[in-house]
Each structure stands twice: as C-alpha cells, then as structure tokens.
Design a protein around this nucleic acid. Sequence first.
DNA 1: AGAGTTGTTCAAGC
DNA 2: AGCTTGAACAACTC
Length: 263
Amino acid sequence: MPEGHTIHRAAREHDKIFSGHCLSVTSPQGRFANGAARLDGQKCTGVEAIGKHLIYRFEDGSLLHIHLGLFGRIRKHKLPLRPARGAVRVRMVSAMDAIDISGPTICETLDEPGLLSLKQRIGPDVLRVDADPSRAYQKISKSRRAIGHLIMDQSVMAGIGNIYRTEILWRQRVHPLTRGRDLDGATLERIWLDARNLLEIGVKRNAIITVESEKRSKGRYRENTNIFGKAVCPSCDGAVSKLEISGRRVYLCGNCQVLAGAN
DNA sequence: AGAGTTGTTCAAGC
DNA sequence: AGCTTGAACAACTC
C-alpha cells in the first residue's frame, strides 16, 4: 500500500489525534510487536515520518518504529472498538481514537541511537522540510545506475515508490534507463520538486494523483495516473511500453521520454 | 484459487 | 566495490 505520502499522511493525522494522550498499546496477534507491552498506558508525545518509516514517541523516551512494507496497512476506527479483524500486529487506542496496524515488515521499539542510524541510512525525504536534496543529487550524478532505480532507492532519496517513479519520470520527460551521471542538475531539481509536489498532493488527497487538471470527484478517493498501468500515452497517443527496473514494473513512452547521454 | 502487488533486506556471485 | 539476481516476508484483492 504505502508510498511516502501514505506514511506522512498517517504521521500528521496520528500526531494530531494522539499527541498528549495516553495510549493503550496492544498486540492482538503477539508476533512482531517487539516491546509493545512497555508502551502500554504511556502518553504519546509525537509522531513523525522519515521516508516510509513511522516513529511514535512516548513519554519515557521509547520509540515505536513501523515500516509497512508492501502489504502493511493502517486502519482508523471509531470507538467503541470491535475486536481486531485479520492479522493486526499493533493496536493503539486513546480516549477518542484508535488505529490498527496490520502486516508491517518492521514493528519494533527503538532507542535514540537506533533512530539516528535509521536517519543516517535513509536519503533526504522529499516530504520533509529539513531535507537536503543536494545529498541525493550528489549520489545520482556519480552513479551509472538507471535513474529509474535511483529515485526509488530509499538510501538515495526517500518517499518515492513504484507508481510515483513511473509518473514523475514521464512528467519530466526523462527515460527511466538514463544513467544518473548523464542527468544535469536542472533535471535533477525538476525531478525532486515534482516528487515533492506530487507526494504532497497525495498526502492531501489520500490517493496517488499525478494528472494536472483533475476534477475533484466527490466521495471516493481514486487513484489517477498518466501512464502507470496504461496502454496509451496521454501526451502523444503513442503506445506505452513496459520495463522492469529494480524488480518492479516501469511504464514509459518512448516518444516523450528521452534517453539522455546514450553512447 | 492463483496471480499480482503503492517494499525492503540479505546473501551470493560476477 | 559496485552491481545484479533471487529469495524471503507480509496481507489482501480480483
């Protein structure tokens, strides 16, 4: 489920509803919720997203570290609560609100040094105001690997997942197989800014929306993309082709996206 | 029912 | 060293 926007949206929402409140923290399915018992009954002091990682802080200094992986989900519930449905690993309940977390690949308590090492191995996060994109630009311009790989590599820059990768490169007319070192600084900056722009829209809308003029459909959240999962390029009407990069599918338009520096 | 998936890490081999 | 590949894991949808 999650690209970076999902996690940042959750962090903002959970910070609002949980900060300053005592939480009941339980682990209905036991497995995985390493250290959860120690958090039970404590006051939450803040929630933060770092790339696709979520950090909940508690008053005794404990940190709960969550990564949803490919299948993890967070569901918000109304009180009174019903018993957890499905494989819920952690449930957090305040006087007003509750969430269930299912399927995380990481669910553990962390100390400050652990958080520091997490922050150090993650690249600048496009959704964080304290991000330093030049760290990403430097890595990319030294690499001969495909830009389609690099922008989704969380140690290069954090937040982009498989759908945004396709959409950003199409919007910026960059061929996903272009080597990092063959892209100029201006292009890298366009990629960064577009990523931030799109993910921020994702946070607000709770959906991946990458098309320019979207009619605000009432009711349901709906994903709306240009070429991800599409057969025809909306810009030139040419056929969309498919590639695999970093083991995941990438869509591209061979007319619109230029392979720079091929030689 | 079985394949597919908005992710990541690790190990082994080149 | 850097890059690639494959496996493992997770929970749900169609």
